[in-house]
Each structure stands twice: as structure tokens, then as C-alpha cells.
């Protein structure tokens, strides 16, 4: 299972991020996760929301360049070392992480981590084999109740 991440192109200049979040605010879109990667000239902001299709529509209408990217998300225990096992599993299987970011769920003692890997399917299968449950889009609302 995957979560649809929305990736958005932003110029690297003062106010660019503010304008982006204002557009989401105006459309009453709640961010579940946010991560920003930047170069000297531009940035790519990656967000997770409850309704990715609507978010994409809002952004496109607002003149933004964006795309949907399936990422793997896993809920893990919020304690030291919880990430180690998961990353070891992926590393040992030769799965390369392109990028990753963490976000906190409202549910007590639960952290989430999102991964972008080269081969989503292989990674999902591997995690399933090891009994690690990956989150789907429909799992999100419950985490934030």
C-alpha cells in the first residue's frame, strides 16, 4: 500500500513558502506531513494531505507545478531505535532510499515515516514479508483522530 505524496515546485525566494501555505489555508486543506528539499535556486516541497486529488487540483488552479508521487509510509513506535530495524531491513535487501521524512501522528506513541524508494512495489512486498504494515491513504484519518 502507498500514500500519495504531492510534490510541488517552489522558487527559492522569500515568501514563496508563505504563499504556498496561504493557498492551502484558503482551501481549508490540512497538512499531515511536510518536507522541503532545496537548492540555491529552487525547492521541492513534499506534502501529505487527506485528499491528495483535491490538493493537486487546488495547486494546479493556483498556477503551481506539482505531481503525485506514491511513497511508502510506516507507523512505528515512538522510541529510540525504532527506525533501525526498518532501515536495516531495507538496506540489507539493497533498497535505496531517495529521500525520507518523518511525521507525528496524533495517536499516542506513534510516529510515521515516509520513504521514496526506486522500486515501491519491491519495497512494499519486502516489508509485508517481514510483517511490517505499510499505510494506505485510507489509514491516515484514523492516525490523526
Amino acid at each position: 500500500m502507498n500514500i500519495q505524496q504531492i510534490s510541488v515546485f517552489l522558487e527559492n525566494r522569500p515568501g514563496a513558502m508563505a504563499a504556498f501555505t496561504k493557498l492551502l489555508q484558503k482551501n481549508n486543506i490540512d497538512l499531515r506531513a511536510l518536507s522541503l528539499a532545496e537548492t540555491e535556486n529552487f525547492g521541492i516541497v513534499r506534502v501529505i494531505t487527506d485528499d491528495p486529488m483535491t490538493t493537486v487540483q487546488v495547486l494546479k488552479d493556483g498556477g503551481y507545478i506539482c505531481s503525485l508521487t506514491p511513497v511508502i509510509a510506516v507507523a512505528i513506535e515512538d522510541k529510540p531505535g525504532a527506525l533501525v530495524d526498518l532501515l536495516d531491513t531495507m538496506g540489507d535487501a539493497g533498497i535505496n532510499l531517495e529521500y525520507t521524512y518523518a511525521f507525528l501522528a496524533k495517536k499516542a506513541n506513534s510516529a510515521c515515516i515516509a520513504f521514496r524508494v526506486t522500486d515501491n512495489e519491491a519495497a512494499s512486498k519486502l516489508l509485508a514479508e517481514r510483517g511490517i504494515k505499510t499505510l494506505g491513504q485510507e489509514d491516515l484519518p484514523a492516525l490523526f483522530e
Binding site: 515546485f9 505531481s67 531517495e98
Partner: peptide, 18 residues
């Protein structure tokens, strides 16, 4: 100007095109 065709969620990809 950036276009949807050139865009990717991966910084590496976009930087490579640049």
C-alpha cells in the same frame, strides 16, 4: 519557466536536468 514535463519529486532529477 518550470513545466510539468520537466518537474519531478526528486531533487536529483531536477538538478540533473538543470
Amino acid at each position: 519557466e518550470m513545466t510539468p514535463e520537466m518537474f519531478s519529486d526528486s531533487l536529483t532529477e531536477v538538478s540533473k536536468k538543470e
